Amino acid sequence: MQLDGHIISGEFDESANAFLLRKVKHLSTASILNKKQLHALTDYLHKHKHEDDGQVLTLYDQILVRLNQEEVEHFLNDLDKVKTWYH
């Protein structure tokens, strides 16, 4: 299954029960999120989504990607769609 969301893009691998993250905002990446990692990420973002400064993600432990409050909401909406694909 393919997702082209507001903040992220990628595809879900049903056989591996994992989401392959291909793009965050305008930056390409290749990260795999298993169910536990996705839930941890969404839980963290839900707890901190109202912080004035937003959030910062890192890609490849080197590239910082800033998300403002609105982008965090869009990111959470994208992740919520992916959540439904896990079994």
Rank of each mutant, 00 (worst) to 15 (best):
K83G: 13
H6C: 10
L41C: 08
H48D: 13
L27K: 05
T29M: 09
Y44W: 12
Y86W: 12
Y86V: 03
Q69E: 05
W85H: 10
H46W: 12
Q69L: 08
V24D: 07
A16M: 13
E51F: 14
A16W: 03
H26Q: 14
K47E: 13
D80V: 00
L64E: 12
H87S: 11
I8F: 04
V65M: 04
L27S: 06
H74I: 08
K83Q: 08
K49A: 06
K83M: 10
K49S: 03
L38R: 01
S28A: 11
E71C: 09
E71K: 05
L38I: 01
H48S: 11
H87A: 13
G10F: 05
R66Q: 14
N68E: 10
Q69I: 00
K81G: 01
F12R: 00
L76E: 06
H46F: 14
L38P: 06
E11V: 09
L20A: 04
K83Y: 02
L27D: 04
Q2F: 00
G10Q: 07
L38S: 03
L59P: 01
A18P: 00
D53Y: 15
D80I: 00
N17G: 04
M1T: 14
E14I: 06
A18F: 00
G10D: 05
I32V: 07
H87F: 11
L20E: 09
A30S: 05
E73A: 13
H74E: 02
D43V: 05
L21M: 02
T58N: 06
E71P: 05
A18L: 01
E14C: 03
S31K: 07
N77Q: 15
D4W: 05
Y60M: 13
H87K: 11
L64A: 13
L33K: 00
F19E: 00
Y86H: 08
S15C: 08
V24C: 04
F12K: 03
N68C: 09
H48K: 14
Q55L: 15
T84W: 10
L59C: 06
V56F: 10
L57T: 05
N17I: 03
T58R: 01
E11L: 11
E51C: 09
E11G: 09
T42A: 14
D80A: 13
Q2T: 01
D78F: 03
V24S: 04
E51K: 14
V65Q: 04
I32S: 07
A40W: 08
K25I: 04
Y60R: 13
L27H: 10
T58P: 01
L79M: 08
L20R: 07
E73V: 10
H39C: 06
